[in-house]
Amino acid sequence: MEAYTYMLYCKDGSFYTGWTNNLQKRLAAHNEGKGAKYTRVRLPVKLVYYERYSSKSAAMHREYEIKQLTHGEKMSLCSDLNDKLF
């Protein structure tokens, strides 16, 4: 099973990190207000970073690691998109 760790950029300038086994479906759910409670009040959100894993546990472990990063470190993680977002 493929799994993804992903990071969203929210309207208020914050980041949301999660994991899923269907990235497109999960992104659509977030932007429809059916995703996490955190993102519902920060719409719209943009996918700014993702990583693909071969297992759910690996994706969840990486999600935890990313959530421990500072805002600046998260910005650096998706630095190739910085010109478009920030």
Rank of each mutant, 00 (worst) to 15 (best):
I66D: 08
M75P: 09
N21I: 04
M60N: 06
N21E: 08
E32Y: 13
A28W: 00
A58F: 10
K46P: 11
Y9K: 09
S55Q: 11
T17N: 02
M75D: 12
N82M: 03
Y9G: 04
N82H: 10
L69W: 14
K11P: 00
T70Y: 08
G72T: 12
H30G: 09
S54M: 12
Y9V: 13
D83F: 01
V41R: 15
D80E: 06
L47N: 13
N82G: 08
S14N: 12
R40C: 08
N31A: 06
S76A: 09
Q68P: 04
N31L: 03
A28S: 04
S79F: 09
P44G: 00
N22T: 00
A59P: 10
E63L: 04
L27T: 04
Y50N: 09
E51H: 11
Q68D: 12
G72C: 14
D83K: 02
H61W: 02
G13H: 00
R26A: 01
N82Q: 03
A58P: 11
E2F: 05
Q68Y: 07
K84W: 05
R26N: 01
L85R: 06
D12Q: 06
E65R: 09
G35H: 12
C10T: 05
S14F: 01
T20D: 04
R42G: 06
W19N: 05
V41E: 13
K37G: 13
